[in-house]
Computed example of a mutant assay.
Amino acid sequence: MTTFDDRERAFETKYARDEEMQFRVTVRRNRLLGQWAAEKMKLTAEETDAYAKAVVQADFEEAGDEDVIRKLVSDLTAAGVEVDESVVRRAIEDHTVEARRQLMQAE
C-alpha cells in the first residue's frame, strides 16, 4: 500500500504546485495588463502602479477573466481610448504568455 500512498501524495503535491503556479501567472498577467492599459491611458508612474493593483483586485470579483475584461474595456473607453473586447482578449493572451515566461525565468 505504501507505493500507492506515495503516488497519491505525489499527485496531490503536483496538483497543489500547479494550482499555485497558475494563480501566480494570473496575478502577474493582470499586473502586466494593468500596466499595458495605464500606458494607453497615459497615466503617471504612481497612477500606473495603483491601476495595476486595481486590475489584480478586479479579478477576485468572479471566476474567470470576464471581470478583468469588463474593467479594462470600461476604463479604457472612459479614458477615450478606442478599444473593444477582442483587443483586450488578445492582450490577455499575450500577457499570459509573458507572465508565464517571467515566472519561469525567476525560478
Rank of each mutant, 00 (worst) to 15 (best):
M1R: 13
T2Y: 12
T2M: 08
T2L: 12
F4A: 12
E8S: 09
E8Y: 13
E8F: 11
A10T: 14
A10D: 13
A10C: 13
E12P: 00
E12C: 06
E12K: 10
T13W: 02
T13M: 05
T13S: 09
A16R: 08
D18I: 05
D18K: 08
D18A: 06
D18C: 01
E19Q: 03
E20V: 01
M21D: 00
M21A: 03
F23G: 03
T26V: 01
V27Q: 08
V27Y: 05
V27N: 05
R28I: 09
R28V: 11
R28E: 14
R29W: 01
N30M: 04
R31L: 12
L32A: 01
G34L: 03
G34E: 01
Q35H: 06
W36L: 05
A37M: 08
K40V: 00
K42C: 07
K42L: 10
K42A: 09
T44A: 05
T44I: 03
E46G: 08
E46D: 12
E47P: 05
D49L: 03
D49F: 01
D49Y: 01
A50L: 07
A52L: 03
A52C: 09
A54G: 09
V55Y: 03
V55I: 10
V56I: 10
V56S: 01
Q57D: 07
Q57L: 07
Q57I: 04
D59V: 04
F60S: 12
F60K: 08
E61M: 08
E62T: 06
E62Q: 06
E62G: 04
A63H: 13
G64Q: 04
D65T: 10
E66K: 00
E66Y: 00
D67P: 08
D67V: 09
I69T: 09
K71W: 04
K71N: 02
L72M: 13
V73I: 14
D75R: 07
L76E: 01
L76Y: 00
L76I: 01
T77G: 00
T77N: 02
A79H: 08
G80Q: 08
G80F: 05
G80R: 06
V81I: 05
V83I: 11
D84T: 14
D84F: 15
V87Q: 14
V87Y: 05
V87R: 10
R90L: 15
A91R: 11
E93Y: 10
E93G: 11
D94G: 12
D94V: 14
H95K: 15
H95N: 15
T96N: 09
T96Y: 13
V97E: 12
V97A: 15
E98L: 07
E98P: 00
E98N: 03
A99T: 06
A99D: 11
A99W: 01
R100I: 14
R100T: 13
R100W: 13
R100S: 12
R100N: 15
R101H: 09
R101M: 09
Q102E: 15
Q102I: 14
Q102H: 14
Q102G: 15
L103G: 12
M104I: 15
A106H: 07
E107T: 13
